[in-house]
Design a protein around this nucleic acid. Structure first.
Lengths: 348, 348
DNA sequence: CTGAAAGCGCTTACAG
DNA sequence: CTGAAAGCGCTTACAG
């Protein structure tokens, strides 16, 4: 803001064009309710004077800001970055702006950011995943701010969401792993507390075990914050605790890349000595050697759909429709048959 | 916005506390100008009623929004993501929110986004690099919106900037390359038109050649949009045009990773047959094999400093101070001595 | 230290 | 299709 004093107002434009402020306002916001001739004249004046509506005034009078807020755990990695980019592009094309904040995976920070964005006038909010205090949803309802969740989809939830079923997706990958003959599975997961996506993924692996007659209680799981180093450390710990593991399934690609790196340092070949899988299919997954078998998530589609749905909610076209997107298996070389190293796998 | 009709206003609070709206406003914004006793009573009422100031009204009356806009080429990769994250964290701690938009490296889109963020009430703007129409700077000046540039630093520029000297940094890497004995250098650059960072980096390589008695005109440069695939294709083209190149210097790490991948497909060993370097030192650089020799950029520091400076500008504490940060060489295995393959490098 | 009141620049029923 | 006018909910000189 802080516009210079000489920046023209609606009133100036109205006078210059010889119409009322109401008409200028309509030309800008509801052009079809204005006679073509008037419209042309007014728009020319608007251009000539270089008029830009004052944001605060418009927000107050219209009781909306054309701004949508998104709070994501972090912008630092491609998991959310790609979806967020698509989200912003779509918002833009609908005439909305994006206010972003990050929570660093901390519920208290997220809560503070929600309040900040609401009081900053966000017309609606995008949040990641379902899990948070009920009080937050109540607050948002009281404030009349629509919320949409993303990156997760579950049946029977109150909050509308655009996402995929993390549990089913991971279950399907685990089924594939078990089909190949793996029986001793280790897991490196992101911290599951407060993170339904992470918890669901682990649950998906257990589902697959049950379905295949394996005992889910035998699953070895290490939880660790999201980061390559931590993935490496967890892999080390897991393999030392049970050198007989034939596969390590990771809760996301970043942890998996850490595991992959550590396996090299430990002199283990992937997938001959041990298989490794990820989740998300971020760019990294196709770049590492061997390529990471993982679950492909439709990031851009999710971002785009979330944007259109949220705008529809703000404009009362919808009052919150959920959509389940499909995640799919992305098979690459990091997943193999157990015991390959003994049965004619390539020599070192 | 769209607050429920029952959400209390300043007026409601004033009545309930038995004071004027001016006093409530002061309690919220200038607490030291209010008697302790009054302050306590009013603040209690504010809490009891769950009062939140209306953003639009405040923005209009105060003529500022406590929102800062940033327009970056893309959020999709860690080049800007990491700096942006730090930028947002710092803004938050100063009580400001972040409005982001991306330009997709297109000047016309950037221009449109600048107008959008200004008309949406950004108190100030962060832009990447120097190069854009003078008319844009004039427009911003007329609107009274402070601008700070980042990701670049040059002496003698009008606009304040927090960044590093792209040219000097790349020159220093090129000097290192030449020192190692490389004479036939190929370059894969991002598109330089409209992108001063990219242009400066190429210029830095030419500087180093001149300093070492090589003819800069012999430098082979391919420009290509920023993307792994393109890096791979450019590498192919470069090596086919001149198989005698001993090193390919890339304008950024993403292009370099593409080149690296292509070199594998072509059966060329790095660095034995050909060396490859990058720029930015994003996470990817340390993950690929061999690790990428590159220029390390202090992303987070840049983001943080830009945030504090921009807030200072909005609050008239500063009218725009530039700061040059230091980029440094990050030496890894992708850069070697030319001709290693003939002189005892490891066999295939 | 506190209040009355103007004013910030729009949008939107309501009339015509 | 267009206009007069109320009203949105704050902040801030100005007085006292």
């Amino acid at each position: 803001m802080q516009q210079e004093r000489n920046s023209p107002t609606l009133d100036d434009v109205a006078k210059a064009a010889g119409v009322s402020t109401a008409t200028v306002s309509r030309c800008l916001n509801l052009p079809d309710r204005v006679a073509k001739k008037t419209l042309d004249r007014v728009m020319k004046t608007v251009d000539d004077m270089g008029y830009t509506p004052n944001f605060g005034a418009r927000a107050m009078a219209a009781r909306r800001t054309f701004t949508i807020g998104a709070i994501i755990p972090t912008m630092e990695n491609s998991i959310f970055a790609r979806g967020l980019q698509a989200f912003q592009e779509e918002l833009r094309s609908r005439g909305y702006n994006l206010l972003v904040a990050s929570s660093s995976y901390r519920p208290d920070v997220e809560k503070e950011q929600i309040r900040a964005l609401v009081s900053r006038g966000a017309d609606a909010l995008l949040l990641i995943g379902y899990e948070r205090e009920q009080a937050i949803y109540d607050y948002l309802e009281r404030q009349g701010v629509p919320v949409l969740l993303a990156w997760a989809f579950l049946e029977g939830q109150v909050q509308p969401s655009i996402g995929f079923n993390n549990r089913a997706a991971m279950c399907s990958l685990a089924n594939r792993v078990i089909e190949l003959g793996h029986r001793r599975i280790g897991v490196i997961s992101a911290i599951t507390k407060g993170n339904d996506r992470a918890a669901e993924r682990v649950a998906g692996i257990r589902d697959a075990m049950s379905q295949n007659g394996l005992n889910p209680e035998n699953l070895k799981v290490i939880e660790t914050p999201y980061d390559i180093q931590n993935g490496a450390a967890a892999f080390d710990e897991l393999m030392k605790a049970d050198p007989g593991l034939t596969v390590v399934m990771c809760g996301n690609d970043v942890l998996a890349v850490g595991a992959l790196r550590k396996s090299k340092e430990m002199g283990l070949r992937v997938p001959e000595d041990v298989s490794i899988t990820g989740f998300d299919d971020i760019e990294l997954a196709s770049i590492v050697t061997p390529g990471l078998t993982t679950v492909h998530v439709p990031h851009r589609e999710m971002g785009r759909k979330a944007a259109t749905e949220l705008v529809d909610m703000v404009e009362k076209i919808s009052n919150g429709r959920s959509a389940e997107l499909q995640a799919s298996l992305q098979i690459r070389d990091s997943l193999g048959v157990p015991g390959m190293s003994d049965t004619g796998g390539p020599d070192r």
